[in-house]
Design a protein around this nucleic acid. Sequence first.
RNA 1: GGCGAAGUAGCUCAAUGGUAGAGCAGUGGACUCAUAAGCCAUUGGUUGGCGGUUCAAAUCCGCCCUUCGCCA
Length: 603
Amino acid sequence: MRCFMSEPVLIAVAWPYANAKIHVGNLTGAYLPADILARYHRLRGRDVLMVSGTDSHGTPVTVRADEEGTTPEQVYKRFHVEFIELFQKLGLTYDIYTTTHSRNHFDVAQKLFLSLKENGYLYIESSKQWYSPEQERFLPDRYVEGTCYFCGKPGARSDQCDNCGHLLEAEKLIDPKSKIDGSTPELRETSHFYLDLEKLQDQVGDFLRERQDYWRPNVIKQSLGQIESEGLHGRPITRDLSWGVPVPIEGWDEKCMYVWFEAVIGYLSSVVEWASLHDQPEAWHHWWTNPESRTLYCIGKDNIPFHAIIWLAELIGVSESFDEKMGAEDPKPLVLPYDIPANEFMNLEGRKLSGSKNWAVWGLDFLERYDPDPMRYYLTVNMPETRDSDWDWEEFYQRNNNELVATWGNLANRVLSFAYKYWEGRVPDPGELREADRALLASIREGFANVEAHMEAVKLRAALQEGMRLAAEVNKYLDTSAPWFEIKEDKNQAAKSIYTAMQAIDWLKVIFSPFLPHTSEQLQSFLGYEVPLFGSLVTQEITDELSTHRVMLYEPGESMTAKGEDLWKPVELTPGKPFSKPSPLFKKLDASIVEEERAHLGQ
RNA sequence: GGCGAAGUAGCUCAAUGGUAGAGCAGUGGACUCAUAAGCCAUUGGUUGGCGGUUCAAAUCCGCCCUUCGCCA
């Protein structure tokens, strides 16, 4: 059983939707920055929980299931299993990666829905929707096609014409047909619950205004801009659909909650699930009702309104009612977002990513040919933190060879090889350090503080850049002290140089570990540590009354970060300590990969 | 159409009113422990365009162009 004594940090990661593979844009936008933050906070000894899961419900999943002649559940599971495989290979340390299709999520989502209703933030309104008499069910807009009343072209969806771009009113669509069986649907009156955003808008606006100085401008201004220009309006949060979380009200069990309303609740339900899987069912409070808790939402810019407005409004509206429903004697409100460091998008070779045109670099496909750390490196130095960025194979190749291999990997290799050769695999004893040695170590020490500042501000590319600058500084130091000369004259002098460089590498290993965990662990073992920095990822099948679902869990195990100590600081390397013969951390890539990879695009 | 973000060296990005900088690429050099890696030096910019405010603008204001996201 784990004890939670330290500062709670919840890393809430966007939930991938179960109808498309994950590409580098998804990774750099949300999933990778989340893991970098999670690992950093773990190193600080904080009580980190990184959570997410597959967004499994909604119309697109049912559309695909219909097309493939299978069930929505099978469709979501196929993607879900692939997502987990990718995250595991890339080393994304989700404490729990689950799904919205679980009994637990249903319970939590329904409790939250009822809390909002009881607190007066839901209302019912009726509208006209397409209904298929043949199938005896309502049809989503995208199931109905007809002729556009603007441009006269057939094949227009009932809500929008792809030909002329006009938004359409369903009633006016000419000759509507169901895409499923070609039958003619009719418009019928139907009722739905709406989230009363008008009632919550002042509280949402005030909350955002208080965070103007440290949230990213894109997030704050977009949300406030909408509130201040148009104001917020009620939004329907239920659907006439069977694949989803049923509305928990008598007479409404034919309807489901709308995915955008329900999936974000996963940030809460996954923590509840994590707690119960670890036999500490009350532990979710540590992150969700504790005023000390910091919740960071890692998302892409397309998700900003759902998090900075709608989810925020849900949390404010629920207040302590959810805790009450969970049986708390002294119920507390849910914790509101500490930060939402949304990223922009990543393009590919100058063009927008497009799954349907195969204009994408797919995560799993990439990892069949390359290692995870080079991908993590390139995606971080190119992270779209302030504007859209671009994946360019030439640049990937250059940065891998010039920066990872040449500056950092080669530094570790040259120093450890030299030390291994002349000191028989033991850390040399430096005696008293010289001025230049102390100066180098002082600047790495300063590096911890610099990188820390960037990490706390979620400026990950600047943080990694600082790490590389420090690695270059060690290279410069070596060139000046030139231990390969010293060794010929006076081995004691060389011992000082090599000890200093090894010490620097040991520290840089920590600084780089949130970004490059696989190679930092390799260094950890080369340097003779018996315990790894981080734990490992495992999967498990969970069966509940609803279904069976796979979860991925992070297990701290016996790792250094499991102890809850602050490891983000220089620790002295013991002279005489045994270490092993090193091998290169990174592979040098051949220039030919650029053309090969480019040839695959768009095929 | 409304809201928002972005446009700076060949490329990727810094620089919140005070002489436009860094890394990579390019060019030149000395060295050899290391994955021919590393180190030193160096070329390169009408800051998307036009206008305005100011002693001073990449930065503030207005209009326009281009790209992207959300909403209608």
